[in-house]
Amino acid sequence: MTIAQLKSLLYLPANRASAVAKARTLACDAVILDLEDAVQPDAKDEARTAAVAAAHDGGWEPRALFLRINAADTAWHEDDLAAARTGSFAGVVAPKIDTAAQAQAIVAQIGGRPLLAMIETPRGVLNAAAIAAVPGVAGLVAGLADLAKALNTRPDPQRRPLIYAMSAIVLAARAADVACFDGVCTDVRNIASLRAEAAQARMLGFDGKTLIHPGQVDPCNEIFAPSAEERADAQALIAAYEAALAQGRGVATWNGQLVEVLHVAQARAMLARA
């Protein structure tokens, strides 16, 4: 599974042994062992050691295992980078990436692993296209809680104050041909809220969503996975186009809609993702 095919990315505190063990049984596409927000300052060293051990112990397949490091302006950053290089991680998640130069500096220090850059400040949103274009950046992750705080927005279940920033992140990712993932739903016991956010994120073009509770995994997978109806429609659209080609026509109609090669490419991409 490529990074762009990930639907559900679950954050876990790296020093929570029981949660890490349980994660190996969950249906999430990726696990992000967190050294940052989920770990208190006096437990950073313990969490880092535990994360490296968990990576070496294995058992994560088919899940991808990422490490979220602390920001570059913290005392833990350099040690986190060293841990990322020594552990068997599929990639690194870096918080509060504001500029392409910051992304480049981290890429240079993580031993060729792909970087998921978190966009969670106004400056990061404005520089998202340049960040996404950095070689080695494999995706952008929306950090919407910090962004909402920085923007001084009011709470809104529909996330309307953040739509511009979310779309900017998607646009930047698509321009650079990298993945993009929605931020977390902090109302962890409200599955309806999680489902609404995931549906909105998919509508906006995100590839998947970051999560903070195991109960969010299955609903997220359901929302981001093409439905049986969508798969059937895609197959029918492709068949209509191929039939038109066999008759010497470059376009077709299906279900009352004009079908061109770009629609076929979208349908095939969706089936590949499914």
Rank of each mutant, 00 (worst) to 15 (best):
L67R: 03
M118R: 10
V184L: 01
V52K: 02
A196E: 12
E78M: 13
A132I: 08
R85W: 02
L115A: 03
I238M: 02
R68Y: 04
L9P: 08
T253H: 13
R123L: 14
L116E: 08
A72P: 03
A82S: 09
G139Y: 01
E197V: 00
G215M: 07
W76K: 02
P114A: 03
A90D: 15
I212A: 07
A133N: 09
V178H: 02
P62F: 06
E197M: 13
M270C: 06
L262I: 10
A100R: 04
L6W: 00
L126S: 10
D233V: 00
Q257Y: 05
N127K: 06
E36Q: 15
L140S: 11
R154N: 09
R174P: 09
C180S: 14
A108N: 06
T25K: 13
Q40A: 14
D34T: 12
I238D: 06
V217T: 10
A84C: 12
E197A: 12
M166R: 15
D187L: 14
A21D: 14
L33Q: 08
Q257M: 12
P219Y: 00
P13V: 03
E46F: 14
A129S: 15
A173Q: 10
V217P: 07
G250Q: 05
R174M: 08
G256M: 02
V93K: 09
R63Y: 00
S8R: 00
R123C: 02
C28Y: 00
N152M: 12
M118S: 11
R202I: 03
L126H: 11
A132L: 11
L237R: 02
H56M: 12
S193K: 12
L12N: 05
V178N: 06
G91R: 02
Q5F: 08
V134C: 11
N190Q: 11
I223F: 11
A246I: 09
V125G: 03
G256W: 04
T86I: 10
L204P: 10
A64P: 00
I3S: 03
I69R: 06
E120C: 05
I69Y: 01
P161S: 07
A145K: 08
L67Y: 04
V217S: 03
A274H: 06
G124H: 00
A132D: 10
L258Q: 09
Q216P: 11
L35V: 09
I3Y: 03
I32R: 13
L126W: 04
W60L: 07
D146L: 01
V20F: 00
R195W: 01
Q104Y: 01
G58L: 05
A47F: 06
A168M: 14
A133Y: 01
R24V: 00
L67E: 07
R48E: 09
A72V: 09
R160D: 11
P226Y: 00
A23Y: 02
R160W: 09
H77M: 04
S18R: 15
I110S: 04
